[in-house]
């Protein structure tokens, strides 16, 4: 089966000379949720805009569901639904009209039942005839999602979908994204909320200064680059750790009242560390573990949050 998105050697240099994308290669599998992470100005929106046809690439090719975005732009774009970062809506239109417009624009015959279903699923049905300018920010965001889904796309781009929405709405949006994926739709999202990527993405891509520096399965990424730490609270403070613990590279914290071990499955994990502590006659009153988040990994990769 062809990839949902296939990007090959994609570069974009603007007229100002700024290189927003540098030789990007990327495959997004059908039916997955792919999160594209990167600091501001890294090239996330340029990459999405290029795939969607808004920005012209300087070099390289892009295929959407096997259709080249230049040679077969109609088929390629028909497969795509885009929710841009900015809340750009027709302020004086109603949700019903603007969603119906989007469906027509993408060449689909009128289907009031589909639009009704969309608006109901996105909790917009009771606002269907209200001018969009009178809706809240969260509702406007949902109108934009409804527009993007109006033509039943198989690939959906969500550029910062949770920007400016409250926690409750964000959680409900994650649920909607999962529901969408369950219907076979491929989802590519960019986000600043790393817990969002951690929560819903199957795979992660990290872009920095126009270069895609990593694409990895989320679980593998967290296993590979994530750290697990065992924190031991001691009864008595120590000035230094005994030589018998040296193979486990302990670190003293909290004025010697805490020992922190970084561990993984290769060095035997928690049982072996505790056995080493007992063998050294070190008494402890409590222990806890912590695991680095995607945010820690991201900061490690790009050097900034």
């Amino acid at each position: 089966m062809t990839a949902a998105i296939s990007v090959r050697n994609l570069s974009k240099t603007y007229a100002t000379g700024f290189s927003a994308l540098k030789d990007v290669n990327l495959d997004v599998r059908r039916g997955e949720i792919f999160a594209l992470l990167g600091p501001n100005g890294a090239g996330k929106t340029t990459l999405i805009s290029t795939i969607c046809g808004i920005v012209r690439p300087t070099a390289g090719t892009v295929e959407v569901c096997g259709h080249d975005i230049s040679k077969n732009y109609r088929a390629a774009r028909s497969s795509i639904g885009l929710v841009p970062q900015e809340l750009t809506t027709d302020a004086f239109e109603t949700p019903w009209n603007t969603v119906a417009f989007s469906r027509g624009l993408f060449g689909k015959p009128a289907n009031p039942a589909h639009i009704e279903d969309l608006l109901k699923r996105l909790s917009l049905w009771d606002k269907k005839d209200t001018q969009i300018r009178r809706l809240s920010g969260g509702m406007k965001r949902r109108v934009m999602i409804a527009k993007a889904l109006s033509h039943e796309p198989t690939v959906v781009f969500l550029d910062e979908p949770s920007a400016g929405v409250d926690v409750a709405l964000r959680t409900s949006m994650w649920e909607q994204i999962r529901e969408l994926r369950a219907t076979g739709v491929t989802i590519i999202l960019t986000t600043h909320y790393l817990e969002e990527a951690e929560e819903i993405a199957d795979r992660i891509g990290v872009i920095r200064k126009g270069e895609l520096i990593l694409t990895e399965d989320k679980t593998d990424l967290m296993k590979k680059l994530g750290k697990k730490e065992l924190v031991i609270d001691l009864y008595e403070a120590m000035n230094s750790t005994p030589p018998s613990l040296a193979p486990y590279a302990p670190a003293l914290h909290a004025d010697g009242r805490q020992i922190v071990f970084t561990y993984d499955d290769r060095n035997g994990g928690i049982p072996q560390l505790l056995a080493a502590l007992n063998a050294s006659n070190i008494r402890y009153k409590d222990l806890s573990t912590r695991q680095s988040s995607l945010e820690d990994i991201f900061i490690h990769l790009v050097g900034q949050p």
């Binding site: 969607c52 046809g53 808004i54 732009y73 109609r74 088929a75 390629a76 774009r77 028909s78 795509i80 885009l82 841009p84 900015e86 750009t88 809506t89 027709d90 302020a91 989007s102 624009l105 993408f106 060449g107 527009k147």
Partner: peptide
């Protein structure tokens, strides 16, 4: 001006 041009540019038209 409003930014809704994105939809025209990304549509199969």
């Amino acid at each position: 001006f409003s930014g809704t041009i994105y939809e025209l540019l990304s549509a199969p038209v």
